[in-house]
């Protein structure tokens, strides 16, 4: 008994270590790619920062200050070391540390992503489960239709439609900004719809698969209450694979948030990132990419660990 427990603990620890290793590898790969792309672009970053009409000595001084005069491999090692310490340098324009800029904006984006994530689960799980239990009925058709339409409608169009209907026409919600609770509702609905559409299909597929298993047939045959078999036994098993998928979906929410923040003029990470791109503020772009890669990998990692926690079969295997 105790031996089993110990092997199971070992398995969990090795799972965590493996996932963290992959995380480190991914982040390193992403930062290498970012480092290289910024340096292969036509044009001199120092020139971009200094402005097209700056005098050559000023550009040269800037080049030295930004470390662009050093050999590429030394720049790369320096970049890796800085990244490891989460030091992304300072913004070309506002001169503020990039990490401060990011941490300043991240809470809004994180809050938007987390609330949309919860809403999407609250919507997708019941719809997916009902569609699976009532397979090939009108309910199933409606659920699948919701999924197809939700996936086809681009989030920014949905956002505009919601704004036109609820803010312009009915005047129920404020138009732009993030000052009150009411400002949050339409952005959250937009993001949640997009994710829920994808999740519904996973929940339905997973539940259908579970309902076809023998234990459900056996429980039905033994005359256990029909609904209890479905909603307590099968549902719990069916939701396990959904946890992993949901973790990945959470990562995509961060990407979706960029667009939705733009439509609703929310001052989050997305807006910071986008304005950095428009003004070619490379430290902010690099820092933003690495930061998002870390958050994205962490959420995938967390999902894996949660599914290992709820599903002993993964732990042992």
């Amino acid at each position: 008994m105790r031996g089993d427990e110990r092997t199971s603990h070992h398995a969990v620890i090795s799972l965590i270590l493996r996932r963290l290793g992959r995380l480190a590898l991914t982040v390193m790969l992403i930062s290498t790619v970012v480092f290289l792309t910024v340096r292969v672009i036509p044009g001199d970053p120092a020139r971009t920062v200094a402005g097209m009409d700056a005098a050559e000595p000023a550009v040269e001084a800037l080049r030295i200050r930004l470390g662009l005069d050093r050999p590429l491999w030394r720049q790369y090692l320096g970049w890796l070391w800085d990244t490891l310490r989460l030091d992304f340098g300072t913004s070309f324009f506002s001169q503020e540390p990039v990490l401060d800029l990011i941490l300043d904006r991240f809470p809004l984006t994180a809050l938007l992503a987390i609330s949309s994530f919860l809403v999407s689960l609250l919507v997708a799980i019941p719809i997916g489960v009902i569609a699976a239990v009532k397979r090939w009925t009108v309910w199933d058709g409606l659920g699948l239709m919701f999924a197809q339409v939700g996936m086809a409608v681009p989030s920014f169009w949905l956002a505009i439609l919601l704004l036109m209907l609820f803010s312009v026409r009915l005047g129920l919600f404020p138009l732009f900004g993030a000052d009150s609770f009411m400002h949050w509702i339409l952005p959250v609905v937009t993001l949640a719809t997009e994710r829920a559409a994808v999740l519904v299909r996973f929940v339905r597929a997973s539940m259908v698969e579970e309902l076809e298993k023998e234990y459900v047939l056996a429980a039905d045959a033994r005359g256990l209450p029909h609904m209890r078999v479905r909603f307590s036994h099968a549902l719990r098993n069916a939701l396990m694979p959904v946890v992993t998928i949901a973790g990945i979906q959470f990562g995509y929410l961060l990407g979706g948030a960029v667009i939705v923040e733009q439509v609703f003029s929310l001052p989050g990470l997305g807006r910071l990132f986008l304005s950095a791109i428009v003004s070619r503020d490379f430290p902010v772009i690099q820092g933003g990419v690495v930061f998002i890669a870390v958050v994205f990998s962490l959420s995938n990692c967390a999902a894996d660990l949660v599914s290992a926690a709820v599903n002993p079969r993964i732990r042992v295997g």
Partner: peptide, 23 residues
């Protein structure tokens, strides 16, 4: 496959924006 997974492990739209911002 590690390389392919790294590409997939980043939000698509953000990655596309980054690439386009550079090129």
């Amino acid at each position: 496959m590690l390389l392919m997974d790294a590409v997939l492990s980043f939000p698509t739209v953000l990655l596309a924006i980054t690439v386009v911002s550079v090129f």
